[in-house]
Design a protein around this nucleic acid. Structure first.
Length: 608
DNA sequence: CTAGGGTTAG
């Protein structure tokens, strides 16, 4: 080591553990006698220091030290690569690997290759993974289980399908549980839960051995296919293997019950858990968020009273729950707590807040959050767009979409659904059609049934009913209830009785599951004077509605929340609602709006 | 110096 190196080491050493510092300084002051002076020992100590820097997140220091190292062996290079990936700087890790291959006179070993493959996964690049794959073959490293498993993981997470991953998997001789779990996770994380479960079963048959990792990912697969039956079987197997004391495994079981909407099982599972961490609570809170927002909020207070502090995940769920209930004052309170806890700039939380303010009718506040965000992603833009679109600002929503594209954010399918809905409500038919063409042509997004539904609605609302019908006939999907429903509305609004009759037949053949469909049908019959058919629809609807919990609406009046279902009598509060409705009707008359009484719900008693 | 699992947003 030269003198310059010694000085540098001392400056670096101010922030490192005493033991490393001492050994490094000793090594620098007293070179080992066993080494001849012109053949320096490999920089083992400096590499140890490098690793220590990365563990503490001291990236700049690590880089400076590495740059100053007079001699850098494979281990030093590999430490840089794995150090960067462990700090989530996968791009830099890749650059170091390229530098090593280009300029350094060292050959990569199995450590280097598997660390580099992890970096490829981090930057989501299967092509770079394939490059490393070639190198693996060239270096004769394909026998290394670590390398093969890392390669399998890159292909499983970054490729469009599982072909390459499964090819790698089948070539591994002496597969271990990591190989199996990586394959299962690959299928499961891309939404192919059945295939994931299939591989899991094969693993149990062939391996005869299981591990907690594979169990929790298999449980996740059950959740993704909403199979509570498989989930319960796995739960039983987990108890049998004594894994019901493994916290991550039980968290995944809890999540599975929530996602399968088995809230009673979720509740029981939660109570039986001997150990709970913040993920347990977050899972429960997120699970209740969709079906029982009140319970979600009360779980949150219980979580806090048990001394666990909520994090971004907790608040995201709570904000979503509040958004579903549209209780603005509560949302503002939670927003305050988020700021107090210093979680203000979190991207996902800000996105949830935009949605909450927009759903509570406060589009301006939503926009304020959006404007203040240090970084925005596609979800931020889309949420804001939906906020505009669903409050009658169709033109603003469309402008917003344009601005987003100009900003360099690439829209996905959901963003197109949002902009098409906005066009539909703003009456911008031609623009909407152009967006559809651009979506397919410029963005290479395959339209699905939902997108075709938007298009049918767009054409139908604008009165281009025949075109809408041709579209339904020519699209590569079987139209569902919502497509026919949108079309039916158009037939009625623009007076196309023949196509309307056809649509009615099609809708009824699908045995509708949405109550609103029966309302539309009933009203169409009623408008036509077919009272008997109309009543039949009401009857079918009531029979269906009684099977499931009624959809509740919430309203906030003077800091009081009222929740009610259609047809509810809210007692004395009803007077207040009636008053508001009367005022609204006055406004409508002033604006010379002629109400379409055909759309009024004909609440006929059965048999009339 | 190396590989696999659990919770967020449109």
């Amino acid at each position: 080591m030269n003198a310059r190196k010694l000085v540098l080491s001392q400056t670096h050493c101010t922030q490192i553990p005493q033991t490393i510092r001492n050994s490094l300084l000793c090594a620098a002051v007293d070179p080992p006698h066993s080494n001849p002076p012109f053949l320096p020992k490999p920089p083992i100590l400096a590499t140890g220091l490098l690793k220590s820097y990365f563990e503490r997140g001291l990236i700049r220091e690590a880089r400076t030290l590495f740059d100053e190292m007079p001699e850098r062996d494979v281990v030093a290079w590999t430490t840089m690569i794995s150090g960067y990936t462990s700090c989530n700087l996968h791009g830099r890790a890749w650059v170091v690997f390229c530098e090593m291959m280009r300029y350094a006179d060292v050959r990569p070993n199995e450590f280097t290759l598997s660390s580099t493959l992890k970096a490829c996964k981090g930057i989501n690049s299967s092509s770079r993974g394939a490059l490393v794959h070639a190198l693996v073959l060239k270096e004769g490293m394909s026998g290394s289980l670590y390398v093969s498993n890392a390669l399998l993981d890159v292909y499983a997470t970054c490729c469009v399908n599982m072909d390459k991953a499964s090819a790698v998997f089948h070539e591994i001789r002496g597969k271990n549980d990591v190989s199996w779990t990586t394959l299962i996770a690959g299928y499961t994380h891309r939404g192919d839960g059945y295939m994931g479960l299939n591989v899991f079963r094969r693993m149990l048959l062939e391996e005869g051995e299981s591990n907690p990792f594979s169990f929790s990912i298999a449980v996740r697969a059950c959740a993704s296919v909403h199979s509570c039956t498989y989930g319960k079987q796995l739960h039983a197997a987990i108890v049998k293997h004594g894994l019901n004391y493994n916290l991550p495994v039980m968290n995944s079981i809890l999540d599975m019950y929530c996602r399968c909407s088995s809230l009673n099982d979720a509740k029981q599972c939660f109570h039986e858990m001997t150990q709970r961490d913040s993920i347990t609570w977050n899972t429960l809170i997120a699970g209740y968020e969709k079906s029982d927002p009140y319970e979600s909020i009360s779980s949150y207070s219980r979580m806090e009273s048990e001394g666990l502090s909520p994090n971004c995940f907790t608040f995201s769920s709570i904000i979503a729950a509040v958004a579903n209930l549209a209780i603005l004052s509560c949302g503002e309170q939670i927003h305050g707590r988020i700021i107090k806890r210093g979680l203000g700039g979190n991207l996902e939380l800000d996105n949830a807040l935009i949605d909450m303010y927009a759903k509570s009718g406060n589009v301006a506040s939503a926009r304020r959050i959006f404007d203040k965000m240090p970084t925005k992603n596609l979800v931020s833009w889309t949420t804001m767009m939906i906020g505009y679109g669903s409050h009658g600002y169709g033109n603003e929503a469309v402008d917003f979409f344009e601005e987003m594209v100009k900003f360099g954010v690439r829209p996905d399918r959901i963003a197109f659904v949002a902009v098409l809905n906005a066009c539909s409500h703003a009456g911008l038919v031609d623009k909407g059609v152009r967006y559809f063409i651009s979506m397919v042509g410029d963005y290479n997004i395959a339209p699905d049934l939902e997108i075709f539904g938007c298009l049918v609605d767009l054409l139908g609302r604008a009165g281009r009913v025949e075109e809408a019908f041709q579209l339904i006939e020519s699209m590569p999907f079987d139209p569902d209830e919502s497509v026919w429903g949108a079309f039916l509305g158009a037939c009625k609004a623009h007076n196309h009785p023949d196509l309307g009759t056809l649509a009615i037949r099609k809708v009824l053949a699908l045995k509708p599951k949405i109550a609103a469909t029966y309302v539309v049908l009933s009203n169409i019959y009623a408008a036509d004077g077919k009272w008997c058919d109309s009543a039949k629809m009401r009857k079918l609807m009531r029979r269906m509605a009684s099977k499931k919990e009624a959809g509740r609406s919430s309203v906030e009046i003077k800091n009081q929340n009222y929740s009610f279902v259609a047809g509810d009598k809210m007692g004395s509060h009803m007077d207040c609602v009636d008053e508001v409705v009367k005022v609204l009707v006055e406004h409508m008359r002033d604006a010379r709006y002629i109400p379409d009484l055909d759309f009024f719900i004909h609440d006929l008693e059965d048999g009339t």
